[in-house]
Design a protein around this nucleic acid. Sequence first.
DNA 1: GTGAAAGCGCTAACAC
DNA 2: GTGTTAGCGCTTTCAC
Lengths: 358, 358
Amino acid sequence: MLNRLRYILGTDLRDTSCRLPVMPKNKSTIYDLARLADVSATTVSAVLSGNWRQRRIAEDTARRVLALADEHRFSVNRQASGLRKSRSGLIGMIIPLHDNRFFSGMAQTFEKLARQRHLYPIVVSTLRDTALELETVRTLISYRVESLVIAGATDPDAISDVCQAHGVEHVNVDLPGRKATSVISDNFWGARQLTLELIAKSTPLKGAERNRPYFLGGLATDHATARRIEGFLDAVRAELPDGGPRQVDACGYEPDLAEAAIAALYQRLKGLPRALFVNSTIALEGVVRFLKTLPHDELDQCTFGCYDWDPFGSMLSFPLRMVRQNVDGLLEQAFAVLDAGAPEEPRIIEIRPLLVFG
Amino acid sequence: MLNRLRYILGTDLRDTSCRLPVMPKNKSTIYDLARLADVSATTVSAVLSGNWRQRRIAEDTARRVLALADEHRFSVNRQASGLRKSRSGLIGMIIPLHDNRFFSGMAQTFEKLARQRHLYPIVVSTLRDTALELETVRTLISYRVESLVIAGATDPDAISDVCQAHGVEHVNVDLPGRKATSVISDNFWGARQLTLELIAKSTPLKGAERNRPYFLGGLATDHATARRIEGFLDAVRAELPDGGPRQVDACGYEPDLAEAAIAALYQRLKGLPRALFVNSTIALEGVVRFLKTLPHDELDQCTFGCYDWDPFGSMLSFPLRMVRQNVDGLLEQAFAVLDAGAPEEPRIIEIRPLLVFG
DNA sequence: GTGAAAGCGCTAACAC
DNA sequence: GTGTTAGCGCTTTCAC
């Protein structure tokens, strides 16, 4: 109403001073632009949103409007257009941390895939804090994101409840939930492959106890670790039938704990085992700390693997086989689920990781 | 208008079917809530936005509205409220990459500081692509972010032009520009400190050529590298007056280039130098590749430093001194500039990095 | 080929 | 202590 008035009067009613009729630099509406171009706001809107061909707007008019918009550095207000269209053009993703190779890689891929779909990506970290996860999701919904990727959430099902209540499409990644489709790493397969590789590439040692691979790090209560242990044991049983439970020490993630664990193992076996499966780069830090105290040639007797990838892995003084999660694959599947759109029966999609050497 | 009508009629006009009068699950307005609570939309609005005390709304009313909002999982539409209030509650930051320790650390700190100010943080990467940087900034402005942190941009001044045209407060971080205040690392100081430390902690070698620290990696045309070289040379001149230009090889960032450079240096000096200043973890990768080919005890002759920090640095087989950028300090200053609000004369604020060992 | 008018969901000035 | 009304800037029928 006021817009129309302003448009008709050809003057900015907000401007109480008596300046020359210059468009205010930092604020202007399509009505201002319409006045300058001597067309209606409708026309401006159509031109700026790109669907002017189908409105059969004269090429001339379009060009004039576009030039003017450019000259005045006009920027459509997406709060307003989003409100009117009931579409924000936003897509959100929550991750536990930015400062982490795995999740920052996900953020990178997420942005790429979002842009391909002409959606503006918003990535927010929630610090493995259930309350912050929920609050963040609620705020994103408040901004009317069109869909959500929930990565590594501590309580995915609580988030699903919120999303469903607002009819927001979403998908879990990395950590599975039961109320929405989840795309996760195939931890069993990855651990099994890494273990098979370790056994194949290692040299047999004397003494039954030392002549086996050992698993170190992580928490057995944690879904991913549990599956990895299964994969590890499966491979061991297939290749070296006399394996037993004493080969697994899910000592936790902290470097200190891993350092103590490998030290204890070394003492028990009176040397390094034939192969060592370390469950994360965090745990690896503790292991390396211990390895540094050993004479250098002792390391040659053991073949090392790590379920996790870091480019620094290749800089260590011993060869290291790593499992690299297929970040691109995880997110491509996640987007495929969102693209499908149908609120399907929740299912779990497992993506195989990659074995990396060096 | 329609809202009011719907509120009066007590029925959802959008609902053309003849369902029971249940509030639609995934969409509802404060008018719907108002009807349920038997108050006006104004009251609901005041209650939900927290300023109901100052409107002297009865505690009772407030509680009822809040309970209802909760029960129906109501979520205020921030597109609408933002439009009305001309405030989006958003603050944006652009970074070159997510998948990078330095910038993902910045994202983490940025979020923390934004939340402290009750702003919703949006971090977007722009892949060191000038066009994408501009487009991203324009889109963020389109969503009406209230201010912007521009980190590591390839063309900060072009971005400043856009921001200024729309009256958006902004500040550069890491890479300086001339059209807005910039908060950057004190590269001169950091490089100087690291070099002094390397000289102090290294053991003198026979032969003038080997008895000096060498600088490796980066591009001399790059602002940061140039300042680091200055700091390096300044320290060398102070401590070992016979230093010369042959001590600096800004061979580029690629590991391959660094590997070739250190190999050439080794050949020229017939051994490792007394100390080596590597200009980034990327270059370090190439250096380590070469070092691995040397007999282990040769490394003891050289003291290593790296201008960049990575937790993996402590896992290398030789001691490494690192310079860690003060990410928190950089962003705290950046926010201080934004908090000040005054469009001050652009200036450069330098933040000292930290020396880390191990 | 273009314009007028209504309304997206919210907030704030002004009522009483 | 609470309600009425106008309007934020845009898109979308409908009209001609």
